[in-house]
Structure formats: C-alpha cells, structure tokens
Design a protein around this nucleic acid. Structure first.
Length: 328
RNA sequence: CCGGGACUUGGAGG
C-alpha cells in the first residue's frame, strides 16, 4: 500500500509477485490500488487470479467492479454482479454503489436503477452515483428528480461531490440562475473553500455565458489546482479572450502549477478559434520540448484545426497523415 | 489491526 501511495505501482506489483504467503488483505490492497491508479486491466487479471486461489471478498469484488466501470466492460461487470449475488454481497451499500456506477458507465441505466432500488441502505454516495449516472447518460429529468427525492424526501444533504455533479448539469442544461442558486447554497453550507466545488462552479458559470461570475469564483480561490487553471483558460478561450489566456498560462507556471494535456488543449483550441497560428504552433512545440508532455490525439487535432481554419489546408492534411496517432 | 464505492476541467462539426 505504501508503494502504491508513493506512486511506485511497479515496485508494489513486483513485491506482491515475490511474496509466497499472500493473504486476503494483500490481494485486496493490490487489486484496489490497481483499479484506482490506472491499471484496471491488471486489477481484473489479479481479481481472477485471486479468485482462483480462493481469495475473494467484498473488497476485491468492489475493485473488480471499479475496473469494469473504467474499462466499460458490460459483460464482465454483469458476471461480477452475479458473483456478488451468489456470495450474498448484493445488498452491501458499497458493492451496490459500485454496481450503479458500473452500469451507468455501460449506459445501462435500467440495471443501474435496479441496483439502486435493491439497496437496503442508500447513503449519499449511492444517491450521487445514481444522479451522476443519469447525468452522464443525459437523462437530465431523471437526474433532477432523483436529486429532489434525495434532498426533500429522504433528507440527505448534498455533499461536495454531488454539488459538483449538479453544477455540471447546470452547465449543460440550465442557466446562470440555477448556478447562482447553487452558489448561494455553497456559501450557506460552507463549501466555498472546496476546490472541487469551486472548479465546477466556475465552469458552470462560464458555460452558462456568465464569464464575469466565473472570473470572480476563480480569483476568489486560494487553493487553485490544475483543473482551476485549465477551466478558467478554457472559459476565456471559449469567450474569445485569447490574450488573457496567454497571460494566465504564464501566471499558472509562475505559481508553480504544472500545465498538463488539458491545459494545452485549452490554449490550442483558443488559438485556433482566433486564428493565432504562430502562437499556437509555438505552444504546441513547447508542449513536448519544455513541458515534457507527449501530445495526444486531442492536441494534434487542435493543431490540424488551427491550420485548416487559417487556410493552410495542405499542411493540415500533411499533419493528419504524419502524426503519430491514427486519425479518427 | 491492515485493503474498499460516487464527482469537477479536455479536440472538430452540428
């Protein structure tokens, strides 16, 4: 567990391989960590291996479900669901919540809802799993209805994660009036120092066209993280304020926040929409050369768009044919 | 005694 937490998953896995007496907790630790930190495939393999050796409990099951969820593996998820039922875990709130999530990610909201209804104890996480599932599948009415039921009927208070969820719904289908309503709730209930909440709030304001409020939220934060910077830069770019994007990028680096892939997506997309070809090319170059980030398909696409939109069709075509990713 | 579930920002077009 220590090696996983120190970002040394490789070492952890090697160690695990070497041990000859491996108990259930060790299996649980390793599988959960794999599922959580970018090795869902490995998590599933280990889940199966552990199962064959007789190591299986609610923790390994839970991790396997999480892996299926992130890999969007409907069949495997269903099989694990069956196993959970067989072993009598299907009423466990954690397992049930993971099932809701897994089915939601697989776009099977009927099964997600059934898993939810099966739960004898529904806590705030179970509700938010369901609500976010509805939102991810664009079932906006169901999401909002479930929220009201949770809040008014079952008197469960929204936590930070759910608030973030609701704000992302606002961003998609509501206006800044609903944002303001939630904003006031956030202040009244002491969520206004929460970075997750503020990031969601500023994105929602921006998507609802209220860039001023988005700015206010951003500058009011004293715990800005990379998501905060990316979100405000994206917001400014989408509203055409390209020079502010450039300034903020500088500022971001000065404050010691490392730009990531999404940072460059925001900048490149902003450059493209404002025809700033030279700057865009320069940022793209700096991405790998100064920031040690390998451009992904998204960044190449921005670049193709940048060139194409500015009329450099030959170069755009050439880039599509030579970029290191298969074009989609 | 040790392992466990939901969430915010990200490419083109419409």
């Amino acid at each position: 567990d220590m090696y996983f937490n120190g970002d040394n998953s490789e070492v952890a896995l090697k160690l695990f391989d070497k041990f000859h007496s491996r108990n259930l907790v060790m299996w649980g630790t390793v599988i959960s960590n794999c599922a959580r930190s970018g090795f869902p495939r490995k998590a599933l393999d280990l889940y199966i291996a552990g199962f064959k050796h007789g190591f299986l409990d609610s923790v390994t099951l839970l991790a396997a479900l999480r892996a299926c969820s992130s890999l969007v593996l409907n069949r495997e998820g269903k099989a694990i669901h069956g196993m959970a039922v067989k072993l009598g875990f299907s009423h466990d709130t954690f397992i049930g919540t993971a099932l809701i999530d897994m089915y939601s990610k697989c776009k099977d909201m009927v099964s997600a809802r059934n898993a939810f209804l099966t739960l004898s104890v529904k806590d705030d996480v179970s509700w938010s799993s369901l609500i976010s599932g509805y939102a991810q599948n664009e079932c906006w009415d169901d999401a909002v209805k479930a929220f009201y039921k949770m809040h008014h009927h079952h008197q469960i208070k929204p936590n930070a994660v759910l608030i973030a969820c609701l704000l992302s719904i606002c961003a998609r289908v509501f206006t800044n009036l609903q944002c303001k309503e939630i904003h006031s709730y956030i202040i009244r209930h002491g969520f206004d120092a929460n970075a997750l909440v503020n990031n969601s709030l500023l994105a929602a304001y921006s998507k609802c066209g209220d860039l001023g409020s988005a700015r206010t939220v951003f500058w009011g934060m004293d715990n800005k993280d990379e998501v905060s910077w990316n979100s405000i830069m994206l917001a400014l770019g989408q509203h055409g304020h390209i020079d502010e994007v450039f300034k903020l990028f500088k500022r971001m680096k000065e404050t010691g926040t490392k730009p990531d892939h999404q940072t460059f997506t925001a900048i490149l997309s902003a450059c493209s929409h404002t025809g700033r070809v030279a700057e865009g090319l320069e940022y793209f170059r700096s991405m790998s050369e100064e920031h040690m980030l390998k451009p992904k398909l998204e960044q190449y696409t921005c670049l193709v768009d940048l060139l194409g939109r500015a009329g450099y069709l030959e170069q755009a075509y050439e880039l599509i044919m030579t970029m290191p990713h298969p074009p989609d």
